[in-house]
Write a protein that binds this DNA or RNA. Structure first.
Lengths: 350, 350
DNA sequence: CTGAAAGCGCTTACAG
DNA sequence: CTGAAAGCGCTTACAG
């Protein structure tokens, strides 16, 4: 008997995914060594023209697709990017993820989305799971992790952060111009003659929220209007938060003629709160949102808001990741925020 | 000089992710062989109590986390599940993905979401990318792939499909009870005295859409009402589709007192169409949606709809994947559809 | 320009 | 119950 002649077959079941072609088979077909195939695959060295042709032909003929898992193990690259999102089901993150996906796909990278749910511990866990899967880079959308922690993280893996101001050799961040956007929104209301303008804030742990509040204040100050703290209500970027805030505002009996909400979802919740008390938009109260996502466009009445392309933000962030991976300095140009007047605002009648 | 003494260090840069602990180090620390560590990790064999204790201690001490990439290569498992979604940014898919994520996470699996955008070619490409990454199973949400193709796919990899009726040894599918749900919605309108009830359909390539239409017809027939084909308008499950359909309906000058839309997004688009013509909901026309997602709850007025837990659907589908992976027959119990009456419908006044 | 060989970090028949 | 060894499918210094 020949000694263990079936050794080769031990892993037969690992290849259960049918007749998967390996690099080795391509090499055989092309009459070269696996190393050479690998090299042309990775553009890692110059290869003679005829061999390249033979290999290309073999790849095409066999329909070879390199196994990213093996590449990951051997080369330390997995062609996957870990993306830490907060609430995968919100329209905001949905748009951003779409931008990321669209940008990464043509480059051959695949995003792996994990939700942090605005909880520090969960974000940390998500990142650890992503790292253990050897993602090539990380893209963190907002969240509550301390800046220092992200800074430290970027020592281990290329990192792009949305909604912070951070930088480092392998660290890049980008932000909307929330301040300008919010000033636009508030000024729009001021221009329409509104003076008692309430603001429903976003999650205070979120830079965007802080900047939008600052923009609101600034616009009022620029117009020489006092900032009345009783008109500033807490919110959390959700419809429920907006509904609650509007209800509280109404109960406080503070006079007001307009509401500027920190995002569209908040504005829509607030609109419902007004509706419940038979207050009509825009006849009785004007409402402005922020983001210009689908819910704003299709609200009844359609919501005046500030357009920030969340999709573009996602795409640019993903582009920055790709730059970092190539060892280049990311170059991003975000579209400037723009006011989109629709039917939820109107001139104040005296 | 000793011959190539630095061989060992060649891959130093692969371990760039800092001091990653390997299984080998755990074995050393515990004084056992790597095989044994692997075995207790996988529960693959009974191991003596003392060794197990030593290994557990070593794992804890070193903070060892097995490398899924290596596990994938060696064992043929990657602990990742490929999920083909259609529009990652829609509220519907957002909810479903959340359910999937929540179900998979505690089991140690990670979902990899890829969008098919309702295009056959893209779905095919997505699946191929997922397979090349050696996902352990596939979860396909709706889409346009022919049943036969999915059937064939399930020969290669465990497959769960949402929104079809398919089965096989490694194939499982689950569906909402759309027919019942749609009958509930239409009957609600009939009970309120409506007779001229328009229906805005969903994407006809989608089973859900067909079943909802069938439910609408059935309810009318049961009530002895004629089904008027001029009151059945095409749609595509989007707000824009709903808006267009409502506009066309109005322009057709067909009399109607209620609209049943194939999903919430369509209903919201239709509501905007009515609003543009100064038709009030529910005073002039009643509107019913389907799904009960956030946009329905926070619409103005809040939308009467049929509740189908999309989240639960996602979670159950993911649960089915896990069952398949364990070699068990999936056991799913979907909540029954339920009518949620809100403010967009009211009794027809004569 | 190119091949042979070692290695990535695991898993798993084999053989006690 | 457990170890030594081969192998998963690649990549990459080394040495021509």
């Amino acid at each position: 008997m020949s000694p263990s002649p079936s050794r080769r077959k031990r892993h037969a079941q690992a290849a259960s995914s049918a007749g998967v072609i390996t690099l080795k088979q391509v090499a055989q077909e092309a009459g070269v060594s696996p190393s050479t195939v690998s090299r042309i695959l990775n553009g890692t060295a110059t290869v003679s023209v005829d061999k390249k042709a033979a290999i290309d032909a073999a790849i095409a003929k066999l329909g070879f697709q390199p196994n990213p898992v093996a590449r990951g193990l051997a080369g330390g690259r997995t062609l996957s990017i870990g993306v830490v999102t907060q609430t995968i089901s919100s329209p905001f993150y949905g748009e951003a993820l779409r931008g990321i996906e669209d940008q990464l796909e043509p480059a051959g990278y695949i995003p792996i989305f994990v939700s942090g749910h605005w909880r520090e511990a969960e974000e940390r866990k998500a990142i650890s799971a992503l790292l253990s899967r050897r993602v090539d880079a990380l893209l963190v959308l907002a969240g509550r992790l301390p800046d220092e922690e992200l800074q430290a993280l970027s020592l281990r893996v290329p990192l792009v952060v949305v909604g912070r101001k951070l930088q480092g050799p392998q660290l890049f961040s980008l932000e909307f111009d929330n301040l300008t956007g919010a000033r636009l929104a508030a000024r729009h209301l001021l221009d329409l003659g509104h003076r008692r303008i309430a603001f429903i804030a976003g999650d205070p742990a979120h830079n965007d929220a802080l900047d939008r509040l600052a923009g609101y204040r600034q616009a009022l100050e620029e117009a020489g209007e006092p900032v009345d703290p009783t008109l500033i209500l807490p919110g959390d970027f959700t419809e429920t938060g907006g509904l609650l805030a509007a209800t509280r505002l109404l109960e406080s009996r503070q006079p007001f003629t307009a509401i500027f909400a920190a995002n569209d979802q908040t504005a829509i919740g607030a609109a419902l709160g007004l509706h419940r008390r038979n207050i009509r938009i825009p006849d009785d109260v004007s409402v402005v949102g922020f983001d210009d996502l689908a819910p704003a466009r299709f609200a009844t009445p359609p919501l005046t808001t500030v357009r920030q392309s969340v999709y573009e933000m996602g795409a640019q962030a993903a582009g920055a990741v790709l730059s970092l991976l190539r060892g280049e300095a990311p170059q991003v140009v975000l579209p400037v925020p723009e006011l989109v007047p629709r039917e939820s605002t109107r001139r104040l009648l005296r």
